[in-house]
């Protein structure tokens, strides 16, 4: 009956091609990218400032120069107080929710784009890889800026509380305090913040991107935001 022409298999694109497309997309959508990145920046800034502040407290407690406020509140306590632990957990939650939310929104509004790319022959994996690259880059850049802002905030607060002594006892590197509390050090904290921001951004975007890529294109293009 019909002439049967075998249908070949779709090829994988070279990585550099994905990199080019994702950077192009970030560049042209710069305004929107900045808003999404700002979500990440804020989350990490909050986390890093709370944590750094806590490390400063620890370092200065050790040196016997703890602030008056801490002495009044937690005179009996040594090391990380319950309040501090709570603050760090809360800031982590705010950070996770904030980043997941901004990435989710950024991907959802691009469902039609995902459907269209599939119509043109994109493999599911390629679509996910594009989002992974875009969000990874956004996550890292946003988190680095956020970590620096958070550090600056904590330093300003520290200067207010301890004056220039702050720099003398500044918790830059990891250390073990006498009271048993472990000091992560600001450098590692910044690194941790950057990696966390990047991982959260990647998870936050690649999960919805993967879901959208798995949909038949007709359904992805029908999705209204």
């Amino acid at each position: 009956m019909q002439q049967q022409t075998p249908i070949e298999e779709q090829i994988d694109l070279p990585f550099v091609e994905s990199l080019r497309i994702s950077f192009q997309s970030l560049k042209i959508r710069f305004g929107r990218s900045i808003i999404t990145t700002a979500g990440i920046t804020l989350g990490i800034a909050f986390l890093v400032s709370v944590w750094t502040n806590n490390e400063i407290e620890l370092a200065l407690q050790e040196s016997g120069r703890s602030s008056a406020i801490t002495n009044l509140d937690e005179a009996a306590e040594q090391g990380i107080s319950t309040k501090d632990i709570w603050l760090i957990i809360m800031s982590l939650i705010v950070c996770v929710v904030g980043i997941a939310n901004s990435m989710l929104m950024a991907v959802t509004e691009r469902f039609r784009e995902i459907g269209t790319m599939k119509c043109l022959g994109a493999l599911d994996g390629f679509v996910v890889r594009l989002f992974l690259l875009e969000s990874g880059f956004q996550g890292f850049a946003g988190a680095l800026i956020g970590a620096l802002i958070g550090l600056l905030g904590a330093v300003i607060l520290g200067l207010k509380n301890y004056g220039l002594d702050l720099f003398f006892y500044f918790p830059l590197l990891p250390a073990q305090h006498e009271n048993g509390a472990f000091q992560l050090g600001v450098l590692l904290l910044i690194l941790f913040g950057c990696i966390l921001g990047m991982i959260l951004a990647i998870i936050g975007s690649s999960f919805p991107a993967w879901r959208a890529a798995k949909l038949p294109p007709a359904e992805a293009m029908r999705t209204e935001v």
């Binding site: 009956m1 002439q3 249908i7």
Partner: peptide
Amino acid sequence: YIDGQNMSHLSQRQIAAFRCHR
């Protein structure tokens, strides 16, 4: 059936190639 091929028998990669080329 397109070009005599039963579309439900195609793999994901073949469907992507079909959308791309045909």
